[in-house]
Structure formats: structure tokens, C-alpha cells
């Protein structure tokens, strides 16, 4: 039986976490959602997550900073970036900094699930 994943979702728009949490939990994974990057990083310091899904444009700590701090603390964690319309260039920058993949809003939960499954496969293979 495959080990369940610990997934963190960070987006300052309430609707994203509210919709993603039940959709991702259907697969049996543990999902915690945050609207504030700083609180999310505090939580990550307490217990690392396998996968972090973060919006890139947020007040306070943005997605790029989340990416850098998460990878500095846990290089095995896969970070998936959520981007809006105008931030594709920034998403490319995020990939260059080590993000696993990115997904553009609007998206369907199934689209994100497919990216998460790719990340999970990479984690299990130890790469």
C-alpha cells in the first residue's frame, strides 16, 4: 500500500484552499491549507510536508520565498507553483529555482491531482 502524502496548500485567496482540501483529501492524503505564507512556513518548520502547493502572488511572503525556504529546509519536498494570468514569466523563474512544476489558474482539481501524482512518483523513486 502506498504511503499517504502530506500536502500543504498556500493561497491567500480563501476559495483555493477551501476547494482544494476536500478534492485532494479524497485520495486519502493529509491536506493542510494556509492563507498566509509566514504561518505556513512556521507549520513547515514543525513538521515537513511531502508536497507544497503555493500561489506565487501573495501579500507578505510570496510563493518564490516559500519555495526557497521550503527547499532550504527539505530538499526532498516537491513544490508546485500556482500562477495567475500575468505571472507565467515568474513561474519560469520558479522552475529555474527548483519548483517541481506549475499550474495556471483557473484549473480543475483533477489537473492539480495529476501534477501531484507525478511529484509523488518522483518522491517514491527517491529522485
Amino acid at each position: 500500500m502506498e504511503q499517504k502524502l502530506r500536502i500543504m496548500v498556500i493561497d491567500d485567496e480563501n476559495i483555493v484552499g477551501k476547494r482544494l482540501k476536500p478534492a485532494l483529501e479524497k485520495g486519502g492524503d493529509t491536506v493542510e491549507t494556509f492563507e498566509d505564507g509566514r504561518k505556513a512556513l512556521e507549520r513547515f518548520g514543525e513538521a515537513p510536508f511531502d508536497i507544497v502547493v503555493t500561489d506565487i502572488r501573495m501579500d507578505g511572503i510570496d510563493g518564490l520565498e516559500v519555495l526557497e525556504q521550503v527547499l532550504a529546509r527539505s530538499s526532498a519536498t516537491k513544490v508546485i507553483i500556482i500562477t495567475g494570468y500575468a505571472t507565467v514569466e515568474v513561474a519560469r523563474e520558479a522552475l529555474a529555482k527548483g519548483a517541481f512544476d506549475f499550474i495556471a489558474k483557473p484549473f480543475k482539481p483533477a489537473d492539480l491531482r495529476a501534477v501531484i501524482e507525478k511529484a509523488a512518483a518522483r518522491i517514491r523513486s527517491g529522485k
Binding site: I15, R19, P106, F107
Partner: peptide
């Protein structure tokens, strides 16, 4: 199409769509 309820989006998307 995005009104169908199947999608996750935020206010930025809606504002960007209106501007576009």
C-alpha cells in the same frame, strides 16, 4: 465555462478576464 463550478480560480482571474 468557468462558471460551471468545475474550476478553481480567484478574483485576480476574474479581474484579468474583464480587463482582457
Amino acid at each position: 465555462e468557468k462558471l460551471s463550478g468545475d474550476y478553481i480560480f480567484d478574483n485576480h482571474y476574474v479581474a484579468a478576464l474583464a480587463d482582457a
